[in-house]
Nucleic acid binder design. Structure first.
Ligand SMILES: [Mn+2]
Ligand SMILES: [Mn+2]
Ligand SMILES: [Zn+2]
Ligand SMILES: [Zn+2]
Lengths: 137, 137
DNA sequence: TTAAAAATATAGAATTATTCTAATGTGGGT
DNA sequence: ACCCACATTAGAATAATTCTATATTTTTAA
């Protein structure tokens, strides 16, 4: 039953963002939004397959791109591995990467203070920060 | 003649770093180090081809990887486009990206002050910063 | 000096991630 | 029920990189 409620809530989020809430799209967004943390497209495929066995990989990619387009998720390209993952946290935030453990953790804005002293030729639109190291948690 | 001097200087740099200075490797590093700014492997191939017409793309990749291994260049994977480029500036520095114009500019450490307030669970080894925006130069 | 050994370079095949294509399916409005 | 726009699908195409097997060059040492 909780599942049904989830679906309805998800459905509404998609609709409001202008994404037609098809069954496949609901399943993809539900996974990215509620059930995972920074998954790759392949992880999304595997997870959604468990409940929706015939989804095509193209649909996973199409849907993820549509969700990015609609501003519901962000694509994060990791600076070293180059792997892409999808981030349900659309608020501005930074990332901590523990490559050894394969971890990608969100860092709150307030934990990182950035002071730019750039000449006026640089019109800043966005700042990406990746902190790399070891996480012992 | 200047060319000859360059080659000798480059040759010494490679040797010191433990990379056997073959003609192909000298040509690749000379381009990355002296004649370009953040080139991609494909750009390296095109440039080196002009002077060394039979170099194979595999050799370009092998050489770039060897140079990274030896610490003579850094590979930079751009966070949005995902394109890789090679950076002869091995000092710690940050990057400004103007995607519209296809620009990648070095930013000096002193122009960006970063204050981390992370809990002790986070052992920081490296910080990557990409500033995105528009450059009017 | 020569011949084996080691290192490097080469061409093209293989791999991986992603996008494209063309055909098929689906649901809401008539 | 019938359209039609939209979505989904399977598989082909593309692009970046790595791998493989062969050829070439350089080094070593008899
Ligand atoms: Mn991930
Ligand atoms: Mn570049
Ligand atoms: Zn995140
Ligand atoms: Zn740089």
């Amino acid at each position: 039953m909780n599942d049904k409620k989830d679906q309805i809530a998800i459905s509404e989020i998609l609709s409001k963002a202008g994404v037609n809430p098809t069954a496949q799209r609901i399943a993809v967004f539900k996974y990215v939004h509620n059930e995972s943390d920074h998954p790759t497209p392949e992880q999304v495929k595997v997870a959604v397959d468990r409940v929706f066995p015939k989804i095509s990989l193209a649909t996973v990619y199409n849907t993820l791109n549509a969700l990015v387009e609609a501003g519901l998720v962000k694509a994060v390209k990791l600076p070293n591995s180059g792997k892409v993952c999808y981030d349900a946290n659309t608020a501005k935030h930074y990332h901590f990467i523990d490559e050894k453990q394969g971890l990608l953790l969100d860092l709150d804005l307030k934990d990182i203070k950035i002071d730019l002293n750039l000449s006026t030729q640089f019109e800043v639109k966005d700042v990406d920060v990746f902190i790399k190291g070891h996480y012992s948690g």
